[in-house]
């Protein structure tokens, strides 16, 4: 329970940092770019890496460094067919569904065994 509270507190702090930083620097542009990058580059790949035995710092840092390039590559490839704007949304949806697919079919035994341990 304590850990969960601390994680929430950490997320609140980070969000506050982003808001304050944006306000004193580039206002809404910084805010939108930071949140956009977290949502598009980090989140989908964090969820995918979460299926593997990696610690939290590793998942966060690798998800950004891999996410920024792989997400953008997919946008480029899909964008040739559907246009860049639409392919940003499509890529995000594809990655979120890929993670659900991985969780349900590929890593189901691992997730089950983790639950057994808990």
């Amino acid at each position: 329970m304590e850990i969960r509270f601390n994680n929430r507190l950490l997320i609140t702090f980070t969000f506050l940092f982003i808001v304050i930083f944006s306000l004193i620097t580039l206002k809404f542009i910084a805010f939108k770019v930071i949140l956009g990058f977290i949502l598009l580059f980090i989140l989908p790949f964090y969820l995918i890496l979460d299926n593997f035995d990696l610690d939290m710092e590793e998942k966060i840092i690798f998800s950004f460094f891999i996410g920024v390039i792989f997400f953008s590559s997919l946008v480029y490839l899909i964008g040739n067919l559907f246009g860049v704007r639409f392919s940003i949304i499509l890529t995000f949806i594809i990655l979120i569904f890929s993670n659900l697919f991985l969780k349900k079919f590929i890593f189901k035994n691992k997730n089950k065994s983790n639950k057994d341990i808990e």
């Binding site: 542009i29 770019v33 956009g36 598009l40 390039i69 953008s72 946008v75 480029y76 860049v84 940003i88």
Partner: peptide, 20 residues
């Protein structure tokens, strides 16, 4: 392509041409 595509994504999500 991906490095520059990431800048393009920044322009699109912030709706800003230069600062983003």
């Amino acid at each position: 392509p991906p490095y520059h595509m990431a800048f393009s994504i920044a322009q699109i999500i912030s709706n800003d041409r230069i600062t983003s």
